[in-house]
Design a protein around this nucleic acid. Sequence first.
DNA 1: TGACAATATGAACATATATTCATATAATAT
DNA 2: ATATTATATGAATATATGTTCATATTGTCA
Lengths: 97, 97
Amino acid sequence: MTLLDEDKIIDLSELFKIFGDSTRVKIINVLLDNELCVGDISDRIDVSQSAVSHQLRILKDSKLVKFRKEGNMTYYYLADDHVEKIFKMGCEHINEA
Amino acid sequence: MTLLDEDKIIDLSELFKIFGDSTRVKIINVLLDNELCVGDISDRIDVSQSAVSHQLRILKDSKLVKFRKEGNMTYYYLADDHVEKIFKMGCEHINEA
DNA sequence: TGACAATATGAACATATATTCATATAATAT
DNA sequence: ATATTATATGAATATATGTTCATATTGTCA
């Protein structure tokens, strides 16, 4: 394993930082199965609409989720299966601790 | 995939939070191959001894690294290969972005 | 024992970040 | 057109967190 350069280190830590917030993890968790609109995410994880929207923006900016618009609804979904893999890898670690 | 309960979510986000700092990622990065003493880590990643020591404590408390003492040196090493796996999974994601 | 080296730690400071609140924007329906 | 619904956003506030600086601790060696 060759060492990562400074830039990669930054990118990597930024990526993990996104996963390092419970609201965002909750969002990812409920998106594992299906896409959901903002209101449903808010209801399911019991976090205010505004807070969810703010966090969705962060998730979107870091390309962990994507969205599609339908009328005045916005449906969010996980961007790719790396998100799921990273998530599950973390779960494994926790379950063995 | 069944949904995680609140406690697991917290644990998971706390785990990722640890990876979400560039100094800690730098430390993990240089520990991928070999154990190292604090001074060597400090030198290699160019972060002060004190800052490294503080971060090593966080890594140790969250059980991502372990250590052994030898004289007045302390050698740190990665706790298990989950750490490496999570790290590499993150790298993959970055390299495809 | 005394000096030195390696590491750990506490307090202070600065910065980052998450939530709330109020409100803006945009689409729909009456 | 107006009211309503869904979502986004900006400012403010509160909290969390990382680094520095000074110093404590612990072990080694003369």
